[in-house]
């Protein structure tokens, strides 16, 4: 059994690691000058060559134009849901009767890759009234502030389906 990281060429892993580190460095310095660039490139290259597998799960995405478009639409949906989620939470905590109906429901995901599932769990945690509690393979247990459907199909359609559509294209 070969680990998932081994199927991705070493050169790509090093390149992704190098690019991530250099970007991080440039953003941290907040300016792009020759000396900053040289120091950052040298340090990033050294770390990328020494620890190439450190970010292996970052390289699982598909680098196709279709995935790029899906990514943009995913972030559009994500920020819309994030704002909606905060407004709903504000109305709940500000209303005197505190109208909550909490519970933990079970949902199923069709995503296969680790990064895809991680992103899905993260998205669920930031969307209206839901929070991932536990992940077991394709099953996710989600805490829901106002439970609307207790069965697996209903909850899956309500919570997961919107994000899964885009994440499927990006990560598979």
């Amino acid at each position: 059994m070969v680990a998932k990281g081994e199927t991705i060429p070493r050169i790509r892993r090093v390149a992704v690691m190098f690019a991530t580190l250099l970007l991080f460095w440039l953003m941290l310095m907040g300016r792009v000058t020759v000396d900053v660039l040289i120091v950052g490139a040298m340090a990033s290259l050294a770390i990328a060559l020494l620890f190439p597998s450190g970010l292996s799960f970052f390289t699982e995405f598909r680098a196709t134009p279709k995935a790029f478009v899906a990514g943009l639409r995913y972030y559009g949906l994500f920020f819309k849901e994030l704002v909606k989620s905060n407004l709903r939470l504000a109305t709940i905590v500000l209303s005197p009767s505190l109208p909550i109906k909490p519970g933990i429901v079970k949902v199923r995901t069709t995503l296969k890759s680790r990064m895809g599932r991680l992103m899905l769990a993260n998205s669920i945690s930031l969307t209206p009234g839901t929070l991932t509690v536990e992940m077991e393979g394709e099953w996710l247990y989600v805490h829901w502030v106002s439970v609307e459907s207790t069965d697996v199909e209903g909850a899956t359609a309500e919570i997961v389906a919107g994000f899964e559509r885009y994440l499927e294209v990006i990560y598979g």
């Binding site: 905060n86 939470l89 905590v93 909550i100 909490p102 929070l131």
Partner: peptide
């Protein structure tokens, strides 16, 4: 939300959403 919510899970919900946006 942190003060008013009745249990730890709902407090996590209140805490994590507002402290992101």
């Amino acid at each position: 939300g942190l003060v008013r919510m009745p249990d730890a899970y709902n407090r996590i919900q209140a805490g994590t959403k507002s402290t992101t946006l």
